[in-house]
Structures are given as C-alpha cells and as structure tokens.
C-alpha cells in the first residue's frame, strides 16, 4: 500500500500535492460526497444508536429510521436481535421497495459500517475529515482508500442495482476520483 502511495507521489509530483489552491480538490471531494451521502451508501453508515436509516426516493422527502425497530446494537450484522440477512439476502429484490441484498465471498452479507465511519447525519466536512483520518478509515492512506472503494465487495455491491437506487458514477470512477482528490491534496470543505 505504502509503495503504491509513494508511486502516486512520484508520478504526481510534490508541487501538485502541496498545491495551495484547493478548488479542484474540493470539487473532487464534492463528487465523493455525492456517493457517500447517497441513500444506497449512507443508510447503513450510521452512528452510535446503530439504527439503519430509510431514505431515498422510495421513502419520500424525509429520511427516517429503518422501520420494524431494527437495531444493530451489539452486533453490526444485527445478530444480537434480528440478523440483517433474515430479510436482506444475496440479491437485490426486484420488487419496488423490496429489500436490497448483498453478497460477499459467496455468502449473503449485510451489515452496518463501523460507528467511526458514520456518514448519515454528518456534514460533508465531518465525513471528509474522518475519511482521511486513519483512526476512522480503517488505517488507510488515500491510495488504500482508492483501492478499498474499487475492490471491497460490499462497496462494489452498491452499484449492482439498476434504477433510481443506484449511486452516481461507478466504483472504478469513484476510485479514480479518490486518487485524483488525493493528488489534489485531499482537501476538505470547512463546513
């Protein structure tokens, strides 16, 4: 990973990394935020209450907590109460408003992101800051983050739906955007 990051540094050159003008970088961050704040991604990146959200076109204007008193307290995959895979199977439901599913390494996998990766309810600046910080991003350099979003099965799964549920760009494009953002100095908005 580190070697990969160094390679980027070498290719991109220090001038760009140290660029004072953060406007192009902020634009790139804006695109990343578009993905992270998309309901398909953000609904399960929730905070300490461990309650996934229902938001998105099928739920009207106001986001709300996942119905049915679902809670990831005690276990991110719901196992303490009702395991997510009771309803979220390997596939995305083809029925409107049906439960999205997920497959990772051949088995159904659906779980909340860790608390330190909370996106839902946070500002773009906060998400950016924690995305960059190793203590809240799984100890990853920028390059590793780019790698993560293009290879992690659960992330890739986000784009496996058609229709209005699909997040913008593609995993590959997002990876490139993250790389470019890193090369642009990985700036974060101030609010």
């Amino acid at each position: 990973m580190i070697r990969y990051a160094l390679a980027i540094l070498l290719v991109a050159g220090p001038a760009q990394v140290l660029a004072q003008d953060s406007t192009p970088g902020l634009e790139l961050w804006g695109k990343i935020h578009e993905v992270f704040s998309h309901p398909r991604c953000a609904n399960c990146h929730v905070g300490t209450d461990r309650v996934p959200m229902w938001s998105g076109p099928e739920y009207g204007a106001a986001p709300r907590p996942h119905g049915m008193n679902i809670s990831g307290k005690g276990a991110d995959d719901g196992a303490n109460y009702l395991v997510c895979t009771t309803c979220h199977s390997k596939q995305n439901s083809a029925t409107p408003h049906g439960p999205p599913g997920a497959t990772s390494k051949g088995v159904a996998e659906w779980k909340l992101a860790p608390v330190e990766m909370q996106w839902f309810g946070k500002s773009s600046a906060e998400i950016c800051k924690q995305f960059k910080a190793k203590e809240s991003n799984g100890n990853r350099e920028i390059a590793a983050l780019a790698h993560h979003v293009t290879t992690e099965p659960l992330v890739l799964w986000a784009w496996t739906v058609e229709s209005e549920r699909k997040p913008p760009y593609s995993a590959k494009e997002l990876g490139k955007i993250v790389e470019d953002w890193g090369m642009a100095g990985a700036p974060c908005p101030t609010k």
């Binding site: 229902w54 099928e58 739920y59 009207g60 119905g67 049915m68 008193n69 409107p96 408003h97």
Partner: peptide, 13 residues
C-alpha cells in the same frame, strides 16, 4: 402507498 413500508400501522414494540 403501495405496500406496508408506506402504510405501517402499529408494530409490536
């Protein structure tokens, strides 16, 4: 409203 996610009624809790 096409299904129970938009027409919830009361749940056990």
């Amino acid at each position: 409203q096409t299904n129970y996610h938009q027409y919830e009624g009361m749940r056990l809790h």
